[in-house]
Amino acid sequence: MQTQDIRLTSLVICSVLLLIPIFISLFLKLKLIRSTVLSVARMTAQLFFAGLYLKYLFQLNNPYLNLFWLLIMVLAASFSVIKNSELNLRLFILPTFFSLASTNLLIVLYFNNFVIHLQNLFEARYLVVIGGMLLGNSMRGNIIAASGFYKSIKRNENRYFYHLANGANQFEALKPYLREGLTTALKPTIATMMTIGIVSLPGMMTGQMLGGSSPMLAIKYQITIMIAIFTSTTASTALILFLTNRSCFDVYGVMKKSVFKSLVTK
């Protein structure tokens, strides 16, 4: 069973569909035409580039190159995730990179070795693709947790000081915030697992079935991947909170002002 090819002309024909959102945008003056066109163009260019490098990556299938590529993806993810938050790039880039890289790499290797029994653990088709999927999912949780954690301390400074000044050590005073940050980061994945298969068919499963896999194989991949995603989100989020704890507070346990990009207060 082969997947139907999509020819370049068909891509153009598909783009004709965009006339509908463009028409609606015009009619309701949504002012979204420019950004629609731009985002579709960017998506097309980026994905063509991704298709191209994946093609060569799969062809070469060099373990070092694959690993290197995965790390580049982690680096890009770390930058984008911090840039989209209010956190200070300089303080957060290293801990973010380290926590995303270490947990995702460990989990993808575990997956490749113990779950799907790959001969070559660094096989591009699995390492880069599955690693990328874990990364994409865990980076969101990461930054939700980290920025939530630091914002919450800033907002509830009174509560934090109350505990510090009544005998808590720094870790003990931070525990409620750690719990809160981790819970918020994990809730979306838990919610997804609750409804998966009922409300929606996940993209990976759909893709596998289009590619010719049996539905049973596709769901087994989906189950294992969801577990891996949940684990990597939990582990990398906990790790980033622990790692940044050291650099974001002064020796007196007070949060540094430089944690955030711009100083809104004072």
Binding site: N156, N158, R159, F161, Y162, H163, L164, A165, N166, G167, A168, N169, E172, K175, P176
Partner: peptide, 29 residues
Amino acid sequence: RKKVGYVSQDTDFGQGKIYALLTEMLHYS
């Protein structure tokens, strides 16, 4: 700070039951 008891105006405890807060604070090292 070990010897200090600090109370400020509008102390904010966060969430949970009062006794849970007490238990948590009693368990500080």
